[in-house]
Amino acid sequence: METMIFDNLKKAILEYDSKASAEWAQKAMDEKLDPVKVMDAMTEAIQIVGEGFGRDELFLPELVGAGEAMEAATPIIEAELKRTGAKRESAGTVVLGTVFGDMHNIGKSMVATMLITNGFEVVDLGINVQKNQFINAIKEHNADIVAMSALLTTTVQEQKNVIEALKQEGLREKVKVMVGGGAISQEFADKIGADGYAPSAPGAAELARQLLAN
């Protein structure tokens, strides 16, 4: 039974089927399977997609499709993890979102997927995220990294505002700050005092690893 559920859950992710992945995640919980093992199975599936992306066999639509299928199942498993207090091994926890005033979702979602495929736990706050939402999520999830996206030249400044808020809250030394998005450059990242910048989603995952290794 356990193997069958794991296989179907992985299959749902590999077939980019959010409905099926949520259903099989629920089934896993109903059958009282170990939530840590269930999360590991899902991570294994999404890593297969990530590897295909690295080999130029799969592309962004597949990456995002698989990411969303995993996202649909994750809250179901996380609720059980929270209830039992079980802990998963992860590369780190990343809080991410597109900054206030900016409604661009896609690049940020790609980064989220790449982070998940690289073993990070991701708390995706969505788009148009206010600085206090970032602060609260960092505190709540004890985040290692905050990652901010901004596509518009008019909203890049908001990344700086979040960094200032981190300083005021005494969190700046505790979390690494990553920035990205179409309007961002390394020069800008340095100027606002971010710890790192990556030009692409795969680059963001690599950057996150480097920041935590340092």
Binding site: Y16, N105, I127
Partner: peptide, 30 residues
């Protein structure tokens, strides 16, 4: 917005035949 098409089956099924991807053109982000 925030709806998008990158996660749709339609995109996954059609992008390769609808759009030509050159083999050697420089398409790297700057």
């Amino acid at each position: 917005v925030p709806g998008h098409y990158l996660n749709t089956k339609h995109t996954r099924e059609h992008w390769k035949k609808e759009h030509y991807v050159p083999a050697v053109a420089d398409r790297a982000p700057y």
